[in-house]
Nucleic acid binder design. Structure first.
Lengths: 195, 195
DNA sequence: GTCTATAACCGGATAGAC
DNA sequence: GTCTATCCGGTTATAGAC
């Protein structure tokens, strides 16, 4: 097949980001070279710099896009009336979202330390926004008497840890499907906080 | 001060491991160079190879020692009679152990992907041993009727995620002390699994 | 046991041809 | 838009002097 000519930035750009996502998730940001990313897309290393300023921007853009998507999509799933329904929406959305974007989720949790200071502050802010959504649900549930009284911040971080841990061990090929795991997790969370 | 001469391997060896632990935890294995570790101890890079075969062995030895300690120490805290007491021992031990060795814990969770295949298999086996201890406690508690029926493997992984998440956000200088957090976490776990 | 020096290699990023 | 070629600095690991 002849080498393609002409403009492909609208196709190649996404392909570069997808390759970076896949490789960063598999090997870690620091262990992946620009040459590897280029080879995955079928380019020479130099050509990558038409699509990204540098390696750091590649990581930062991936993380920011992921967290923006996460925050906007969770709002659509937590619009119910009661705190218990809101919590259920949050938990189920987290699990389904994190299954469908396992690589991005993994990067967002593992590569924080490879962000330069300014980028780190931005990403940390987006993570904090997500945590606060859960914290607010817990606070409302305590005020309504649906949830046992407990520090909302610590409880939110504990529950996010529980949910986030899924990416560490869940595999598509495992014994249980994501639907069964979703039920078990929701059951645990519900009993953990309800009166 | 004059440069020290003669044999110091019994002092320098541990200092090398401590420096590696600190630096790996702070910056990540891939981002730390042998030169940095050497500088931290006050050696030249070449001299490190008197104390370790290579950088990989440094990581592997740190992780194996940590997980061996974790597994043997948790047994001493989960020897109680009832499953609920065993679970409480497991949770409280995890939190205290992980606070006292934050750097090693962080490495054991973050640097798995930087282990070479054989080393990875060994470390993964030790992690699995730890998970199985919790799984066994949950299974006994279900058989005795103390815990609600729920898949013990998935429940164990969920609870370990909850506990392990602590290292991602807990800071010594934070609003709450580790004792208060320990109580909140134990309260969550207890309600999550009890009938 | 630790040093200096060096081998052999790989990293990100850029310049200029096409 | 992509290529080749290159810069320059970094990496792990080893050899041999002291």
């Amino acid at each position: 097949m002849a080498r393609k000519r002409g403009s492909h930035s609208d196709i190649t750009g996404p392909k570069v980001r997808e390759a970076a996502l896949r490789l960063f998730a598999r090997s870690g940001y620091a262990a992946v070279s620009m040459r590897q990313i280029a080879a995955e897309v079928g380019l020479q290393a130099g050509a990558l710099y038409s699509y990204t300023a540098d390696k750091q921007s590649l990581l930062f853009d991936l993380m920011r896009e992921h967290l923006d998507d996460l925050n906007s999509s969770v709002d659509a799933e937590t619009g119910q009336d009661t705190p218990i329904d809101q919590l259920e929406g949050f938990v189920r959305h987290h699990i389904r979202f994190h299954k469908s974007r396992a690589a991005a989720v993994f990067i967002a949790y593992m590569e924080l330390r490879n962000l330069e200071p300014d980028n780190f502050a931005t990403i940390e802010g987006l993570r904090r926004d997500y945590e606060r959504r859960l914290e607010a649900i817990l606070r409302r549930g305590q005020e309504s008497g649906d949830f046992r009284p407990a520090d909302p911040r610590v409880t939110a971080m504990a529950l996010i840890g529980l949910l986030a841990g899924l990416t560490q061990w869940y595999r598509e090929t495992g014994r249980l499907g994501i639907d069964e795991i979703e039920e078990i997790y929701w059951d645990l969370v519900r009993h953990a906080v309800r009166v």
